[in-house]
Structure formats: C-alpha cells, structure tokens
C-alpha cells in the first residue's frame, strides 16, 4: 500500500517491488537506509549506558561515604553518655550540645544517603530505557522513509532483518549484551535498597524495631521507578526480594532493627562497597565488545 506513494517520490529511487508485502527481511534499499540510522541510534544507546555506568559509580561511592558518616554519627551518639569527657565535663550542657549536634548530623546524612539512593534508582532506570531502545523501526508511510525507536507496525521487528549493524553483531546480540549488563545493576540496586533501609532504620532514640518496613516506599515516586527496573510489580503490588544475581532469596520478613551492633554496621558498609552483583570485569568487557563494534 505504500508502494504508489513512494514510487512517485524522487527521494527514494530504486524502489523494490517486494516492499508491497511486508516481510521480516527488508528490501536492500531500505536496509541501506536503515543501517546508518540504526547504527547511530545503537551507538547513542551504548553511550548512554556508559554515562549511566559512571553515574552509578559516583552515586554509589557518594552513598558509601554518606552511609559511613551516618554510621559514625550513630555510634558516637550511642556512646556519648558513657564517654569520658575529662576537663570538658565542666562545660555546661556539653553532653546535651554534643548530642544535639550529632543528632542533626545523623539527619543530614540520612537525607544525603536517601538522595544518593534516588540517583541510583534513576540511573538504573535510564539504563533499562537505553537497553530497550536499541531497535530501529521504519516509521510512517510517507514518501520519505522515517525511522524511530518506537514501533507502530507489529510486522517490523526493528532489527533490519538481523543483519549486523556495525561489523558483526546484529541488534539482538547488542540487546543481549546490554541486558546482561543492566541485570547486574538491577540486582545490585535491589541489594542497595535493603542496605539503605537498614541504614536509615538505625536510630539511637528508638529501642527495638523501627517503623521502616521493606514494603514501604522510601520516597513518593519510588515504586514507579522501580517498576521500570522490574523490581516492583504493579499488578501484584509487590517488591522483588533482594538477592544475588546467581542465588536464591528468601522472602524477607523485613522488619528493621533500630539498634544495631557496630559489627553489623561494618558488614553493611562493606557489602555496600563490595557490589557483589556487579562483575566489573565483565562490565568492562561488555563495553569493550560494543566499542569494538562501532569504533571500526
């Protein structure tokens, strides 16, 4: 049905007659037009992924330093009553003042930690979007061939019939690589969420369990953003429990304690640092493969 229109167009000569019946294999002229567009798009998405990765690295390390400061403030708050103050004892209200200051610090680091977490959620969301925008669809039926990253034709898989976009890899392989990459970050994000909850829950004022609960949203739009990363199901209204990328997870009871031993807090911080779900060597490798493709 597009043929008559396009045949009249001087912009696209050599119209092949096969175009009349849409097939998984696009005609050669379309391929010729499709390939540079697809290549540009694909390269863009990979660059976005790289940017997101460096954003992740910086928010994760910011988060770690805020978490460390939070833990420090908490530990000092807990020990302030039993602290030997020596000559400082003579100063009026010294304990009270120190207490107030540390308490304030704790609040500050709590909100900083939360904003680092927010940034990480956003970054992973960006990654998911980029990894899902790698295909390039032929769009519209106008005389000029147009391309888009969103499909309006269910017959067009958007992968140019599986031909290599740059050198060797077709779109589907690029998608697989990106998927593998993004999965690591999704798993790590979920683990970080647990750590953030654990760290936000500590409170020297409260004994026993804190009010925080795994199924509470940490900030208003959190669940929307998490559902983009498939960590929250809007149908069942349930969060995916945190787990290792190759491991099982028990459904967490997820009541968080407000008083934790300093050993547990150390382990918490170490787990934050370790990023066990992200195999950074493999991440580098994936980016190297992709870069190898488009750099030639």
């Amino acid at each position: 049905m597009e043929t008559p229109e396009r045949a009249s167009s001087s912009a696209s000569p050599n119209q092949s007659p096969i175009r009349a019946s849409p097939s998984p294999l696009p005609p050669s002229s379309d391929t010729r037009l499709w390939r540079p567009k697809a290549a540009r798009n694909l390269r863009n998405q990979w660059e976005k992924l790289e940017i997101s990765r460096s954003q992740w690295v910086s928010s994760s390390s910011d988060g770690r330093s805020h978490a460390t400061s939070l833990v420090k403030a908490y530990v000092s708050l807990k020990s302030i009553d039993s602290m030997q103050l020596g000559v400082l004892n003579d100063m009026p209200d010294i304990r009270k003042k120190a207490h107030a200051k540390l308490f304030k610090q704790q609040e500050v680091y709590r909100s900083k930690l939360l904003s680092s977490y927010k940034a990480m959620v956003k970054t992973v969301g960006d990654m998911v979007t980029a990894s899902k925008s790698m295909r390039c669809y032929v769009q519209g039926s106008s005389s000029l061939l147009q391309f888009s990253i969103s499909s309006d034709d269910s017959n067009d898989p958007g992968d140019g019939g599986g031909i290599p976009v740059f050198m060797f890899l077709p779109i589907s392989s690029h998608e697989q690589l990106a998927e593998e990459l993004v999965q690591m970050f999704i798993f790590e994000l979920n683990l970080k969420r647990l750590l953030v909850m654990e760290l936000l829950a500590i409170d020297s004022e409260v004994q026993g369990n804190s009010e925080l609960c795994w199924s509470n949203a940490l900030y208003p739009t959190e669940f929307d953003e998490l559902s983009l990363c498939s960590l929250y199901s809007k149908e069942t209204c349930e969060l995916v429990p945190p787990s290792l990328i190759e491991g099982k997870s028990n459904k967490p009871s997820m009541k968080f304690k407000s008083d934790l031993k300093s050993d547990t807090l150390e382990v918490c911080l170490t787990t934050w640092r370790a990023e066990v779900n992200i195999d950074s060597q493999r991440v580098d490798e994936i980016f190297a493969i992709a870069r190898e493709e488009w750099a030639r």
């Binding site: 945190p242 997820m254 934790l260 382990v267």
Partner: peptide
C-alpha cells in the same frame, strides 16, 4: 542483620 535474607 537484615542481609541475612539474601541467600549466599
């Protein structure tokens, strides 16, 4: 602590 629920 709470990390215990994450297997392994």
């Amino acid at each position: 602590g709470a990390l215990d629920s994450v297997g392994g």
